[in-house]
Computed example of a mutant assay.
Amino acid sequence: MMKQDAESVKAPGKDSLHQLHKSQHFWNSDSIYKDQSKILETYCELAMLECLVHGGHALSLKAYFISKLPDLSPLYDTLFYLNLSFNEFRQFPTEVYRLEHLEFLKFRNNPIRDIPFGIHNLKKLRTLIVSFCSLSSLPDGVFLLPYLQALDVSYNNLTSLSNDISNLRALEFLNVEGNSLPALPCGALKLKLKQLRVSNNHMHPLFWGENTHIQPQSLLDLAAMAFAKKSLFLYYADIPSEAKEILQKVKVCDCCRGALSGEGLRFIRPCEKIFGIRKLPFMFHTCSPSCYKSFMSQTESLTKHLYES
């Protein structure tokens, strides 16, 4: 079977299963399947059977109202399309991670609150749809998917995205509609998106003030940055474990690319026009007031200043 785009894959659905049931007079004996869970289990088994009959490439369990997966082991080596939308999963089914050839995963309208880091095991994943769920954050594993082209996390409870989104160099479509994002992370400036959806978020300038933090930094963070910038760890053989733990958390300043400890100074700056959108806001974390002032005084485009200099 030649692999096709997600929208053109005809996965087996309940309509065809109903025809199969009727042809076999499956429901002639009502006394056999009185328990609802048994009925759902039987639906899943028949969907699995039909998938295997058609080569084991595409499986749709959409709107089966299940909370756990059937045994997918017969499909580990063949499945590349899986639709689990409109079900009752409260935890992400980690059995999915064993589908090494999976390219399309749809998980819309499930009451899950988080996705485990192991999502990065789906190395061939190209489309991930986790919209209309209850996610408050995305795991770092999502940003380690090298071939991901489409990511839909619309209508969740996201208040921020990681700068690691910049690792998704194959990403062409991003949908973050219907969340509580005040801005996109500045790492998104590195993406080559063909389509971006950001409506129904908190991106209006009226929200920027409450989402920025231009306050004095703690002495601990300032000391950690000075220690890291001057590479003092090269001169001290015996560093207390507490200090090592703090230094291991030192990050990179979004503006000068130097050391950044703690949250830094958080601020929002819009880009004149990018991804076909005007005045799209981006969130930055800078290491010091002087770095912040220097960055804000720059007049060239954000992408040129940050990534082409």
Rank of each mutant, 00 (worst) to 15 (best):
F173G: 01
M225R: 03
I112P: 00
E242Q: 12
N211A: 12
V250Y: 06
I214V: 15
D221S: 15
A188D: 01
I274E: 03
I119D: 01
V252F: 04
K194Y: 04
S85Q: 05
A237N: 15
K230H: 14
F65N: 15
P70W: 12
K34H: 10
H285T: 10
A226N: 11
S85F: 07
I214L: 15
H285F: 13
Q217C: 09
R278E: 14
A226L: 13
T127E: 13
I119C: 02
Y43S: 04
D152I: 08
S290W: 04
F92R: 00
R278V: 07
G55F: 09
H101T: 10
R90L: 10
Y155R: 12
Y155P: 02
G178F: 05
E41W: 05
L158G: 03
L84S: 00
G141Y: 03
T212R: 09
P216R: 12
E245Y: 07
G209Y: 08
N175V: 07
A11T: 01
R90M: 11
P281N: 11
L191G: 04
F143H: 06
L191Q: 03
I165G: 00
V198T: 14
A6M: 11
L181S: 03
N167W: 02
Y147G: 00
Y33I: 05
I32P: 01
N163T: 05
I66F: 06
S16K: 10
P139D: 07
F104Q: 05
S137Q: 14
G187S: 03
L189A: 02
S261M: 03
D71E: 14
A259N: 02
F267Q: 01
P111D: 09
